[in-house]
Design a protein around this nucleic acid. Sequence first.
DNA 1: ATTGAGACCTGTCGGC
DNA 2: TGCCGACAGGTCTCAA
Length: 256
Amino acid sequence: MQDARFERVLLRRPDLRTSFPRKFAARLRTQTVVRVDRRGKYLLIELSSGDTLVMHLGMSGSFNVEAGSSARAEADKHDHVVFEMSPSATITFNDPRRFGFMDLVTRKAMAGHATLSKLGPEPLSPDFDAAVLARACKGKKTSLKVALLDQRVVAGIGNIYASEALHRAGLSPRRKASTIATRGGAPLDSAVRLTAAIKAVLIDAIDCGGSYAADGGRFRVYEREGNHCLTKGCRGSIKRITQIGRSTFFCPVCQK
DNA sequence: ATTGAGACCTGTCGGC
DNA sequence: TGCCGACAGGTCTCAA
């Protein structure tokens, strides 16, 4: 991908949830890829022009990469963007629900970017530890589940993994986020467990190829309402509640 | 400032 | 069979 060059950019369906910036295709053309990066759920492609191509897959977005210079023989109705690259490759962005988006951000604008610059730590980096999580939750009036979905607390946790991590940590999603904050500067035991659980859940997810990879049913609580809790020795059953309009799955017996 | 509700979009599924 | 409503996901906008 590095040094690849954008030869042609086709917007087949430009009306995604957030519209493309003006002259999107023209600004990309002839640019080469300097670096490919990621922050939270955002994909960042640094270009030779100094601009960064910021992309988000929303919930149903995906990329298809093929050798050759022409788009798929039969374009899918949800193929919204096609990048023709050199050396010869075609990258197609497909997104049935159109929640994904793309933006071009200048070097100057990256630094103070309204969303990107406020993202919390990367959960799998050493920067993310119990003390950092505890500090981010300090004074928060929201529930623990809602705090985990806040990308400023920690970057990249979505609705599924928020439930999964809380179950592994044995913490109730309804508990106030501030109750895991530090006491006398030292992170509480629950912050230590939650930090470890977040990392473990994400590592497992990556190993399995993501939430929607084949062989479903590997979640411990997500979409398991009414089923028995998988925690060793726990005889509880999984409940579903709604928090800020989203489903939360948890075991009321072993998550405190 | 922080928080929550609503909007956005479409495929799928259950119920009638 | 077909229609209809509910629901899923992530983030932005707007209003308390």
